[in-house]
């Protein structure tokens, strides 16, 4: 390989690097999977939501809030100690890169209060807006259904 070819190859490599490197910049990639909300009894004042928050990116992100017109929503965690269940409010939850937060009964869950029961009926879908520090707002439609456990 002569010298001019080597120079051309180096220039080409540099161009490719300029194009490709920015896309490799560390960033979170949030996916909200299998979310659903428990159909609450008509007289209930609260209910729960479950699903999985995945971060498939190479940078962590923090969940800073969840909003909906159907309810006030907070991220809670049920902790069981010595046969007692208590709830802990987690206002800021960091999802590390390439990891997931599973929301399931007796563990992390969405706590829905201040319910608008006209929107929370069997078969309905409600919009939840997840607010992340880096990824911004992500809206998803979530089904309302009977607890199946």
């Amino acid at each position: 390989m002569n010298k001019s070819w080597l120079i051309k190859l180096l220039i080409l490599s540099a161009l490719v690097a300029v194009q490709v490197l920015p896309t490799l910049k560390a960033q979170p990639e949030i996916k909200l999977d299998k979310f659903w909300v428990v159909l609450a009894p008509a007289v209930a004042r609260s209910t729960a939501g479950y699903g999985v928050i995945k971060n498939e990116g190479n940078q962590e992100d923090t969940l800073i809030g969840i909003q909906s017109n159907s309810a006030t929503i907070m991220l809670h965690k049920t902790e069981i100690k010595s046969g007692m269940a208590r709830m802990i409010h987690s206002p800021h939850m960091t999802i590390k890169s390439h990891s997931e937060l599973v929301l399931e009964p007796m563990s992390f869950h969405l706590m829905l209060t201040d319910l608008d029961m006209t929107t929370l009926f069997e078969g309905a879908e409600i919009i939840l807006q997840f607010k992340f520090e880096k990824s911004g707002d992500i809206d998803i439609a979530v089904p309302v259904r009977e607890i199946l456990y």
Partner: peptide, 17 residues
């Protein structure tokens, strides 16, 4: 109690089953 969002509905769902 009925304002319980996670544990009690889950428990009642379990008892139903």
């Amino acid at each position: 109690y009925t304002n319980c969002a996670d544990v009690c509905p889950f428990t009642l769902g379990y008892l139903k089953r």
